[in-house]
Amino acid sequence: MAAHSTRNWAGLAFLGFLFVSVAAVSNVEDQVGGFFKSGHTNNWAVLVCTSRFWFNYRHIANTLSVYRSVKRLGIPDSQIILMLADDMACNPRNPRPATVFNNANQHINVYGDDVEVDYRGYEVTVENFIRVLTGRLPPSTPRSKRLLTDDRSNVLVYMTGHGGEGFLKFQDAEEISNVELADAFQQMWQKNRYHELLFMIDTCQAVSMYHKFYSPNVIGIGSAQVGEDSLSHHVDPSIGVYIIDRYTYYLLEFLETVRPDSKKTLADLFRVCPKRVCVSTPGVRTDLFTRDPGSVLITDFFGSVRNVEITTETVTLQRNDTPQTCR
């Protein structure tokens, strides 16, 4: 049977069980068929904070906000590559050790109870990031630090840090350009490493980072236009830092309302941070994407669906009568 019947459907089926029993069979198949239209079977997320130092607390909070959301919506730690260039939770300057907050009210501790950071501190480099995306890691790399995606994987790539037109700074030493990033995505496509890819970036002049993309099935979302700064949202006077960036603050506010069974679509996601509250102008690029964003669920990227393929054929399993010998 259909493993993922919606709540509405369950209620309806319960009420008119006998009456619609014959028709229901074909209805289920329609519903299920519609369910698989996204065409992916697994979800992955690559979440990157590229800046270190205490005064960049907000970038860690940004990344952990998205981490919290994707984890809550079902992507397990094993399918999240979390790259954090600095450790704010354990920074000696943090008056609230082992926490990172997204809001001065300190309602949500985005650091959470169990956070699995895959690449941290000085491991967050452009090289490691590209290698993770393209899968060209040394054989000794543990599975938990690999992006083990295939051609049915939907990948969310979220980045934040300090950037400029056409680049994003990593640590204080190097930067990734938009061309390098576009080429990395193309390699992923050529190596069948994704089915669809949602690229989201919160940095100054963010949209310049997706301008060079040319691989299919990629959506780009940036927090600020070229020439615009992406701004922080507010200060937490008890911690003494700018605590989160505007775009991600409203993104998290939106994602907090999303549940695994939510019907919200990417079109809703595009509207999370209007210029009125964001100050900068977020941008979206959908020309490489084949589906209509209005019909693509948020959970296709931010959640993890456990779709089951239904086959109408009967599979007969042969009984193996060969005696097992034990020597």
Binding site: F53, F55, V235, P237, S238, I239, G240, V241, Y242
Partner: peptide
């Protein structure tokens, strides 16, 4: 100096 964050803390 960015790191100073003067007066942000109460």
């Amino acid at each position: 100096e960015n790191a100073l964050l003067p007066g942000l803390v109460e």
